[in-house]
Amino acid sequence: MSDAAAPSASRLWDLANPTRFLNLAARLIPILAVATIAAFAAGLYMGLRAPEDYQQGSTVLIMFIHVPAAWLAMMCYSLMAVSALGTLVWRHPLADVSVRAAAPLGAAFTFLALVTGSLWGKPMWGTWWVWDARLTSVLVLLIIYLGIIALARAIEEPSTAARSVAVVTLVGFINIPIIKFSVDWWNTLHQPASVSRLAPPAMDAVFLYPLLVMSAAYTLFFFTCHLMAMRNEILRRRVRTMRIQAAAGGSAADVR
C-alpha cells in the first residue's frame, strides 16, 4: 500500500497497529525521560548562571521558563492540527489518539505561559495582567484548547468524536492567524505611548543558549508526556472494548 510513499510514511502506517505502537512507546519513553532530565539540568544550570539583563534585571530568569512554555503551547497545537489532518484525510487510526493526548498537555503549557508571563509582567509593568498582544493571544489559545477538551469529553460515540474534534482543531488552526492579526491590530490601537513589549532581551549568547537548552528540555518533556498519554488512551480504549464485550458476551466469552 505504501510502496510509492517515502519510508517514513510507511513507518507511520506500520505504527497504526496499536500493539506495535505500545511496544515502541515502551522503548522510547524511558530514553526521552532521561534526555528530558538531562536537558533540564543543563538548561537550569546555564540559566541560573546568566547575568542580569540591562533592562529587566534578574527577571530575565523568568524568560527561560516563559518562552519555552509559550513555544510549546503553539507547537502542541500545530501537532494537533497535523494529527487532525491524519484523522480526516488519511484516516490514520492513531491520529485521534494523538489529538486527545496532546490537548491537555497544550492547555497546561498555555496556562504556564500565562502564569509566568503574568509574573514577568508584574515587576515590569506593575500589574498582574496586561492585555498586550502576545499574552492576549495566548489566553485565546487557552480557551481554544479548553473548548476542544470539553468537546472531546462530551461526545460519546468514538468516530463522531474523533471527527468533530479534528474539525474543530483544524478550524481553530485556520483561525489562529486571523485571531493573531486582529489581536495585534487591537493592541496597536490601544497601546499607550510608552509601553515596552514583553519581549526577550537582546539575544546575547549568554541568554540565547540557556533559552535554547530550556526549549529543548520542554520539547523533550512534551514528547515524553505525549507518548505516555497516547499509551494511556490506547489502553483506556482497550479496557472499554473488553468491558463492552464482556457485558455483551456474558459467560460465553469464558467458554471460548
Binding site: 485565546v140 480557551i143 474543530v168 481553530g172 483561525n175 485571531i179 486582529s182 489581536v183 491590530w185
Partner: peptide
Amino acid sequence: LLLAIVVLPLVIPVLIFAVS
C-alpha cells in the same frame, strides 16, 4: 453551551474589527 465555548475564540476578530 459547548457551542458557545468552542465558537467564542473564533469570533473574537469580528468583535475587534466591529468595535474598532
